[in-house]
Simulated scan of single mutants.
Amino acid sequence: MEKNERIRQLKEKIMELEGFYTPSEGHRLPFGLGPLESAFPRGIFPMGAIHEFISPGMAETASTNGFIAGLLSVLMQKGGFCLWVSNRRTLFPPGLKQFGVEPDRFIFIDAKKEKDVLWTVEQGLRCEALAAVVGELKEISFAESRRLQLAVESSRVTGFLHRHQPRNEGTLACATRWKIMSMSSKTEEGIPGVGFPRWRVELVKVRNGRPGVWQLEWKEGAFRYIPFSKGSGEAKKKQRYA
């Protein structure tokens, strides 16, 4: 038992050195991502880390903004503000209400150049008063991403980098890399209108975790897991990740 405990403590220490912060029981937040959360180390969504999202087109950009807004609704449920920085903002602020967050709890900064976006994001990540920071940009180097990761390791602020049509995805010092695609929504039986937002969520990379593909829906103020239909191509792909 003592040997197992030492191994566990060593793993914890290694993960801390790699930038993974594990909140105490009383400070863990219910992201409600269902089976997706098993992909993360210890089955806990990495807070106090940098998450990278890649969108190849405008449709994916809109879907990714919605998914990020859902994550922010959890991060901001106990108060705090979010800094949203871009040089070509793609977000429609009133749309945040659909995901349970009020636009007046966001500080929007529209910079002229991407280097200004990076500088502002880094300064925001050093501010412990913020709940989260979102940076919309295209290109970023490993060295630049490393500076952002070092910032969150001291402040424990969670950061999101949303990259639009990057020329080179490369390798960054981020805890995760995501690709989000919209899915056809489904209305409740017998009820006309548009259904709830749905996404195909691909966790391309996750440090010390297990990548995979899932389907999620935003319904009644929370994420809801949607199982793949049996025998579908996505189901088979998910099995290959397991």
Rank of each mutant, 00 (worst) to 15 (best):
Q77T: 10
I50Q: 02
L137T: 09
G212I: 09
Q123T: 06
F92E: 03
R198E: 12
Y225D: 14
A69N: 06
L71E: 10
V85I: 14
K205R: 15
G231F: 08
D110E: 15
A59V: 12
A222M: 12
G70I: 10
L216C: 09
S155Q: 07
K113V: 05
H51P: 04
R167D: 12
R156E: 03
T171A: 08
S63N: 14
R105Y: 06
L10E: 07
A129M: 06
I68N: 06
I14H: 02
Q165T: 09
K237N: 05
A143E: 14
T120N: 07
S232M: 07
F228V: 01
L36V: 01
R146L: 09
E37R: 07
L203P: 00
H51V: 05
P46Q: 09
G34Q: 03
L33Q: 09
E60C: 10
V157S: 02
A129I: 08
Y21E: 08
I226S: 06
W119L: 11
L72Y: 05
A39P: 07
S55C: 15
C174H: 02
F99Y: 15
M58P: 03
S184D: 14
P93W: 01
K205G: 00
K179M: 10
Q165C: 11
S55I: 01
F45V: 14
E60Y: 10
G190M: 11
T64R: 07
N168M: 08
S86K: 05
L83D: 00
L75C: 03
A69G: 12
T61P: 00
G79E: 12
F31M: 05
E202L: 08
A49E: 10
R198N: 04
A242N: 14
G43P: 05
A39C: 15
S55Q: 13
G195Q: 13
L83V: 00
F53I: 12
T64E: 07
H162T: 00
E2A: 14
T22Q: 10
G79V: 13
N87Y: 12
R198F: 08
W178K: 03
W119E: 11
V133L: 08
M1I: 08
T171R: 09
W178Y: 11
E114L: 05
V194L: 14
K78Q: 15
L36I: 02
T120S: 14
F228Y: 09
D116T: 07
I54G: 03
G43A: 05
S229F: 04
G209S: 07
M76C: 15
F40V: 06
V133H: 09
S141H: 06
L91Y: 01
M181F: 04
A242C: 10
S24F: 03
R167I: 02
F67M: 12
N208P: 02
F92H: 13
S38P: 00
N65E: 12
V85N: 05
K11E: 10
P93D: 02
Q77N: 11
G124A: 04
F228G: 04
M47W: 00
T187S: 15
V117M: 05
G57R: 14
P56S: 02
F99G: 08
S141N: 07
D110N: 13
S155W: 04
R147W: 09
T176C: 05
L36K: 01
L96D: 04
L137C: 13
W84R: 01
R42A: 13
V121E: 02
G34W: 03
I50M: 14
E217D: 08
H164A: 06
A235L: 12
S229L: 12
I226C: 07
L161S: 06
I7M: 03
W119S: 09
